[in-house]
Design a protein around this nucleic acid. Structure first.
Lengths: 337, 337
DNA sequence: ATGAAAGCGCTAACAG
DNA sequence: CTGTTAGCGCTTTCAT
């Protein structure tokens, strides 16, 4: 009757009592097992198993300051590129015992700062965000909290936080060069919204040239298959007849190819199309998509490892620029005379 | 010199001291502002702002049991379908003040149970998982912790936890019926791994029929464009000449279409191809993909609302079956004689 | 190697 | 409406 066994979950004290040791000892077998005598440790471990005891993360957090949670700010999960990156990050983080909480920002700096604050309130020990363009509010927040933060999908060795990504400008330039090498001169550059998106801006810069004899037209559209299709539709309405389309994202390139083909235009005979990313499906479309490979999965894995190490061992990672490279496939061809 | 202002972050006591009130009052303006006198409240709020005070989530969690964190167990983020669903869930959850921590399981029940335990240890107040096939270990865990849990992407009114999803069997049957209606009889059914995946199994069941005169062949392959392409390659090697391909996922359908076209086979003239999902790009491929629409985004939004309400107001949601429907497009056509 | 005890920052009775 | 106080479950000195 008077038994007070209505407790929901066993706690340290329960274990200590059952194992006939002190709470400190139980805490030790949990955190520094090697420092407690084998016999004692085994007994405690046995009791822990019997009671199905699991330490409370909150209580641990309040004492040690450790939450084992990492946060990621991302524009959207609804996009192949980010989904792959986050998948890689989450997966690798798991190996280090970290959990990942994601917060989507819709590419809005104010929303981003607000969501960052939420993550920080939760007690994330580390943070990822894309690129280097963020609100002052967010920077202030990070300054104050000193939370290890890594910028991904971008490379800039001078940025206040380590960047682990690729050179978006260079990647786009590789794409442009490929098209120029093939003899194309009138090029439609299809890109996503530049607003608040430094990755896109860098790509657009890389896809620009002053080279005489070239004629570039820029089409800003949604970062989706639908967006690529729309851009192609718009481009076809123009007086200029383009030799090639340079899409700064594979997703848009798919849309462009589909729309061009629908209009009876042959790729690459009539027009060449380039993407950027090398998504898994790039080699399967017809024609297979020439693109620039961006090692997003490797990036995610590396970024996760780096942040885990930073948080765990206080070693701030150096910026890393992963190589992007040309994947010339069937959607681009030499310009016919 | 002797100032002990080296504290990292202001805490309740600091605020209380500065505002010349008790910690209880500060706690009240944080949690039940209406219960404290306007003048006092304003003063406290002012101090809170000045000190840049933010309550510790861990400390709050340890006392109130509330973490405002929801967990999601998913096979992978690296897949359009799950990415869209999670995007919707995260987004809607944010409106309710919840954060989302994701854990990927790779479709392995043991990994799933292990990751679930991690989430529970963190103190998630609610949980999502896909379908109704899980390890006993996970069920025991949920039984013990009583954490509100919703199964998504599946519908089964009799399941121990509320399901919010769609009828996978019915969706696949709709697809099959469409092909049968068009006169196709020899059908290649392309599906993902059935192991540990009740969604896929239900779809395969729905895509099966005993109807005489029909000839079904099943191809299990990866849930990817590459997988779809491979299945098509395998199917073309068979002695049977298929009238149609029924892919239980759009992603695979894309791969199948690409591969068939590559082999010089016309879709839908030579062979019809159906997908399932209605991914955003389905209407853009050539030919546009006939498919069954699965309302994944709506599902995510609804699931998030339902779980938030369950956690917050203790109202357990009723199971919901969202309607799937035929989207007949250009990749399917009546069988020529 | 182990235990006792002092908190961590906050919430929640209980008084007043 | 506000203050006092007792914990929540754990980590961490400091002794022993």
């Amino acid at each position: 009757m008077t038994r007070k066994r209505d407790k929901k979950r066993a706690n340290l004290r329960d274990v200590a009592r059952a194992a006939e040791v002190s709470v400190a000892t139980v805490s030790r077998v949990l955190n520094t097992p090697d420092v407690v005598q084998k016999k004692t440790r085994e007994k405690v471990e046995k009791v822990i198993a019997e009671l199905g005891f699991h330490p409370s993360a909150a209580a641990r957090a309040i004492n040690s300051g450790r939450t084992k949670i990492i946060g990621a700010l991302i524009p959207t999960l609804d996009s192949d590129i980010f989904a792959i990156t986050i998948d890689a990050i989450e997966s690798r983080l798991g190996d280090f015992g970290f959990s990942l909480v994601v917060a989507t920002t819709g590419e809005d700096p104010d929303v981003e700062a607000a969501r960052a604050r939420e993550l920080l309130d939760i007690g994330v020990e580390g943070l990822f965000f894309p690129g280097i363009h963020h609100s002052q509010e967010l920077y202030d927040l990070l300054d104050r909290t000193k939370v290890p933060t890594i910028a991904i999908s971008y490379f800039d060795a001078t940025f206040a936080y380590p960047t682990i990504g690729y050179d978006n400008r260079e990647a786009a330039r590789l794409a442009l060069d490929h098209l120029l090498d093939l003899g194309h001169r009138r090029i439609a550059v299809v890109h996503g919204p530049k607003d608040h998106n430094d990755r896109t801006r860098a790509r657009v810069t890389g896809a620009s040239t002053q080279r005489s004899g070239t004629e570039l037209a820029f089409f800003e559209t949604d970062l989706s298959v639908a967006g690529g299709a729309k851009a192609a539709r718009d481009a076809m309405k123009q007086p200029t007849e383009f030799d090639a389309y340079l899409c700064t994202s594979d997703t848009q390139a798919f849309g462009a190819i589909f729309e061009l083909q629908r209009a009876g235009i042959q790729v690459p005979n009539d027009v060449s199309v380039m993407g950027l990313h090398d998504l898994p499906s790039a080699q399967y479309v017809n024609p297979s998509l020439s693109t620039i490979e961006l090692p997003v999965r490797e990036m995610g894995t590396l970024a996760a490892e780096s942040l885990a190490r930073w948080v765990e061992k206080d070693v701030r990672p150096a910026p890393v620029c992963l190589p992007s490279q040309l994947r010339a496939r069937a959607s681009t061809a030499r310009k016919e005379n």
